[in-house]
């Protein structure tokens, strides 16, 4: 008898779980029809700062719900275009094909991409041209750029990453195929690290590695290189001498709601820009 009642309890619990699962679904669906609901998708590099901004904005405005999802820049641009999201995030400039979609671009911040090597590396600086040749595989030894006689280990990001897209665009690491489509000219045996953090970990632990990552991930475990004799510093991006930087864009379409424009207004306000300035370069 006891065991039967125990079984009944467990069956009941399973029932509750199943019902709970479905009720969770319906709640999410309700959110979509809510006028004060905002869905924001796109670049994983922009996601952390936008989540922060969304938290402080919802704390100020009762009833507004903001859902931020990092799925990559390309997908973010596309979501803003096909209206599956209210706002798209991109951590690179729009490609020519995307510009034809007539999206409204708002630059909310700038971020630099630093070229970094292991602290044991003797190389201090590279030109943009050399960076390109290293990532392309035409320079394969550190002694060709003034370092030790060691083979260079190139570390890159997964294809589709906004940081990779921005980096390859900025150092012109792109080639065109017969149909005129641009493709990445990255050396084939580059180590592919899954995210900015993984790039940093690899560069920090491998003597001959070179990688690129967002300024917000820099620390003393890696050494950053001067590019064309300019230090990778926030002020050098502001005065335009450090060239490898990219905008963080928010993309909206002509049907975007009032809530969306209010939120963007908040991001551009002093208060919003203060949050951005914690790790990035404010647009003010």
């Amino acid at each position: 008898m006891k065991s039967i009642s125990r079984k009944l309890v467990s069956i009941l619990l399973i029932g509750i779980l199943v019902v709970g699962m479905f009720s969770g679904c319906s709640k999410a669906n309700d959110g979509g029809s809510n006028e004060k609901y905002l869905s924001i998708v796109g670049s994983t590099s922009v996601t952390p700062v936008l989540t922060k901004l969304a938290d402080s904005y919802t704390a100020l405005n009762d009833g507004v719900k903001i859902d931020v999802q990092g799925i990559g820049s390309s997908a973010g641009v596309k979501a803003a275009y096909d209206k599956s999201a209210d706002i798209g995030m991109s951590s690179r400039n729009l490609k020519e094909a995307e510009k034809e979609w007539n999206l409204i671009e708002t630059t909310i911040a700038y971020d630099g991409i630093a070229i970094s090597v292991n602290p044991n590396n003797t190389v201090e600086k590279l030109t943009i041209e050399q960076v390109k040749d290293i990532f392309k595989g035409t320079i394969t030894n550190w002694n060709e750029v003034g370092g030790k006689d060691e083979e260079i280990l190139v570390i890159s990001r997964e294809s589709g990453s906004g940081t990779r897209g921005a980096f390859e665009g900025l150092v012109k690491l792109e080639e065109k195929d017969a149909d005129g489509n641009k493709f990445s000219a990255l050396i084939e045996d580059a180590l592919i690290a899954d995210g900015n953090g993984a790039v940093k970990a690899n560069v920090a632990s491998k003597d001959n590695a070179i990688g690129y990552l967002s300024f917000s991930y820099l620390d003393s475990s890696i050494k950053t290189l001067k590019i064309n004799d300019v230090e990778p510093l926030v002020e050098n991006i502001e005065n335009g001498t450090y060239k490898i930087s990219r905008p963080f864009l928010l993309l909206t379409n002509d049907e975007s709601s009032k809530v969306a424009s209010n939120f963007i207004e908040y991001i551009l306000s002093d208060e919003g820009q203060d949050i951005i300035a914690e790790k990035l370069i404010s647009v003010k």
Binding site: I71, G72, S74, A75, E158, G160, I192
Partner: peptide
């Protein structure tokens, strides 16, 4: 790169 890694690494960024 293994087949499983190919799916897992790029799924987050891929569309179309």
């Amino acid at each position: 790169r293994s087949m499983t890694a190919n799916i897992a690494i790029e799924m987050g960024y891929a569309f179309g």
